[in-house]
């Protein structure tokens, strides 16, 4: 974890024409260090998926920069971007629909190799078979079958094999375990953790599930209505949130243990429309500690504790504890 592999600066993504323009991402900056997992968490419509897609240039940024491995990506043409995608791969929520239903598993996983010009067919086959074995799919049994013959969890394994077969550096995972049952979800999280170590991967892990994000991430960024509220080391951020929104999110989460009483500060209402966002701090309309300054001045992300940034004029006290480290947590 030395140099940033990915740095995103003042990223803005706008949908729609001038009149009905929506800033889905409204000025987001963060870095992902080499070998690190950065979690990006937030509720529906906060812009977390758009951020991930804009990094891969699947959505074009209106302004701002995305620098990957020392190269600016935002100005690249489609053709140029295509060659860079060997190093940047994305995993999606619905693994079944992200696999071509008419192609055999072995051809799906081999496709990146064909695109990147691994011409030797025998070598391709070896690589594909190795990769399938690594994700726990038997190539002898599965290679000639089609995606519909596999369960959601198995399809996600095949998607992982396809994304890793050409040896990428960065994986953007967008809600990749959200549709899976909890026992399968645990299998995929463990698999991803192991593969990350083995292939020295860097991950941007986008999800809405706070517990899943905490589990896989070294650092976590919290997003609300197109902006980052808070970014910090996972354990610190979850134990001592600085932003009132982070605190509200954490207290709304459920724990499978009737004896763990989370502080219960239920947030009223729902996020406002991004078409017409509130002035100043975007969270102020729902914030229990909002003051006049919050309506007038946009809070910038600033470092309050080592490595822990918050975008709030009145961050929560640093001695504040939202969740005690539960003694029976393992």
């Amino acid at each position: 974890m030395t140099a940033p592999l990915l740095s995103v600066k003042d990223l803005v993504v706008t949908y729609g024409s001038r009149k009905n323009a929506v800033q889905a991402v409204a000025g987001v900056s963060f870095e992902v260090m080499e070998g690190e997992t950065l979690g990006l968490v937030g509720e529906s419509g906060c812009g977390k998926s758009t951020t991930g897609r804009a990094i891969l240039q699947l959505e074009r940024a209106s302004s701002g920069s995305v620098e990957f491995d020392g190269e600016e990506l935002t100005g690249l043409t489609r053709g140029e971007m295509r060659t860079r995608r060997r190093k940047l791969q994305m995993l999606f929520q619905d693994p079944i629909s992200s696999l071509n239903p008419r192609r055999k598993i072995k051809n799906i996983v081999a496709e990146p190799l064909i695109i990147w010009g691994e011409a030797d067919e025998a070598k391709r086959e070896t690589l594909v078979n190795e990769m399938l074995l690594e994700v726990g799919i038997d190539p002898a049994l599965a290679g000639d079958r089609y995606p519909r013959e596999f369960s959601g969890g198995q399809c996600q394994r095949i998607s992982i094999a396809r994304s890793l077969v050409a040896n990428p550096k960065l994986l953007v995972c967008d809600e990749m375990v959200s549709a899976l049952d909890v026992s399968v979800q645990a299998q995929i999280i463990n698999l991803l953790t192991d593969l990350k170590k083995k292939h020295n991967l860097t991950l941007l892990f986008i999800a809405h599930d706070l517990a899943v994000v905490k589990n896989v991430s070294d650092r976590v960024a919290v997003m609300y209505l197109g902006r980052l509220c808070e970014l910090g080391p996972s354990d610190d951020l979850y134990a001592h949130p600085l932003h009132p929104y982070t605190e509200a999110l954490l207290s709304a989460a459920v724990v499978p243990d009737p004896d763990v009483q989370l502080s219960h500060t239920t947030l009223e209402g729902e996020p406002p429309s991004p078409i017409n966002p509130p002035s100043g701090c975007r969270f102020r309309t729902r914030c229990p500690s909002a003051q006049t300054r919050c309506a007038e001045e946009v809070p910038e992300l600033r470092e309050v504790r080592p490595g822990h940034q918050v975008a709030c004029h009145f961050p929560l006290s640093t001695t504040h504890v939202a969740i005690g480290e539960s003694p029976n947590a393992q």
Binding site: A186, A211, K214
Partner: peptide
């Protein structure tokens, strides 16, 4: 089921014990 559920009150990178198979 309980052991494979990630918990918000467990430290980051806690290894989940999954149930193998289907």
């Amino acid at each position: 089921l309980l052991d494979s559920t990630p918990r918000i009150d467990a430290p980051s990178h806690t290894r989940l014990s999954s149930i193998e198979g289907r």
